[in-house]
């Protein structure tokens, strides 16, 4: 292990998040077993109060997860000089086998806690709390992801030894490498560019249909998910190179640096927000048959589709700006 302040901060943060989550899961089990909204008993009143605590804790968990995602990448960046051959976050994440899984689990847990909060928000709008058991089962379902994230991240950070030779982002995300990443990059640039913008506009169009006519929620949701994957792929294969103005530099992390005006932060956030709001609209859709949620859910979906449209507009603005105003001339390649 490297005794680095950033590492200590990440370990501390994830330990706290996990222990809060374990507590929530414990409360979840009690609620699943004992919940009875008809009862006015003191136990029931106590359980109702606990739901406030769990909601609050989960909101904090989401906030912390989001911050720790960026801190994690940032720390990987800062540590890179310690590893021969690592020039940025991409290299230090590759120092051991836990780096990239930890990053992916971090993103997944952000998405999952966001979705849970949407379900929770929906449930809290109906006086009979119709989703109470469902949402606590969901909580029990997502807890393992967050715990896995904590342990994989700990495995990665504790396993870091300076001077281990790693590949830097130049080799990891370059076309020669025989990895899944290489497949992304092998996509013809124009094609993936078209696919990326097509997925944005399809998602926005479907979002607009949900917003205006409350129709096509599932298609919107599925499109959002595909769009999320496309965005990640596009971030590596197309968008980043325009910001770096280097046709061979595909690193998705360097755009978080100040040299590129921190453009990576709004870009990442827009992608995450679009994914959570789009998926959220679909996740709550099956519950619209419930009487007390019948009127509530379309309103929430409308709000979510609006958020998604705004996030995607931001994405178009940033990516479009990068591509249009880049000094990188594509004709040469």
């Amino acid at each position: 292990m490297i005794f680095h302040p950033g590492i200590l901060a990440l370990l501390l943060g994830s330990a706290l998040t996990s222990s809060m989550l374990c507590y929530c899961a414990y409360e979840g089990v009690r609620i699943i077993r004992c919940w009875d909204i008809r009862s006015g008993s003191e136990r029931q009143l106590g359980l109702e109060r606990r739901t406030y605590l769990v909601s609050m804790v989960m909101s904090y968990v989401l906030g912390f997860q989001l911050l720790s995602l960026f801190l994690f990448i940032y720390t990987a960046d800062t540590l890179s000089p310690l590893f021969v051959g690592a020039m940025c976050a991409a290299g230090s994440l590759n120092v051991n086998g836990f780096g990239y899984p930890a990053l992916i689990l971090k993103i997944v847990s952000c998405l999952l806690s966001g979705l849970w909060l949407i379900v929770n928000f929906t449930d809290n709008k109906a006086p009979d709390y119709p989703l109470i058991r469902t949402k606590y089962w969901l909580l029990l379902g997502i807890a393992p992801f967050l715990l896995a994230e904590t342990s994989v991240q700990a495995g990665h950070l504790l396993g870091l030894r300076p001077n281990i030779i790693t590949s830097c982002c130049g080799t990891l995300f370059s076309i020669d490498a025989n990895t899944v990443m290489a497949d992304f990059l092998a996509l013809p640039r124009l094609l993936s560019q078209i696919a990326f913008f097509a997925s944005i506009f399809i998602t926005m169009a479907l979002g607009l249909s949900v917003y205006l006519k409350a129709k096509g929620v599932y298609s919107f949701s599925i499109a959002s998910f595909i769009h999320f994957l496309m965005s990640v792929a596009a971030l590596i294969s197309v968008i980043s190179i325009y910001f770096y103005e280097l046709p061979t530099h595909h690193c998705p992390f360097c755009i978080l640096h100040s040299e590129y005006g921190y453009v990576g932060y709004p870009l990442y956030l827009a992608i995450l927000v679009s994914a959570v709001s789009g998926l959220g609209a679909g996740v709550i859709n099956p519950f619209r048959k419930i009487d007390s949620l019948h009127d509530v859910i379309p309103r929430i979906q409308k709000l979510l589709s609006l958020i998604s449209i705004l996030a995607n507009s931001l994405l178009v603005l940033i990516a479009g700006y990068g591509i249009l105003f880049s000094n990188l001339s594509m004709a040469a390649y």
Partner: peptide
């Protein structure tokens, strides 16, 4: 910004967690 973020994680988050309950 990184130092500020690290500092935030080391101080504000534990404080917040301690005051939740």
């Amino acid at each position: 910004g990184y130092q500020i973020a690290t500092l935030f994680f080391l101080t504000v988050i534990p404080y917040t967690v301690a005051t939740i309950v």
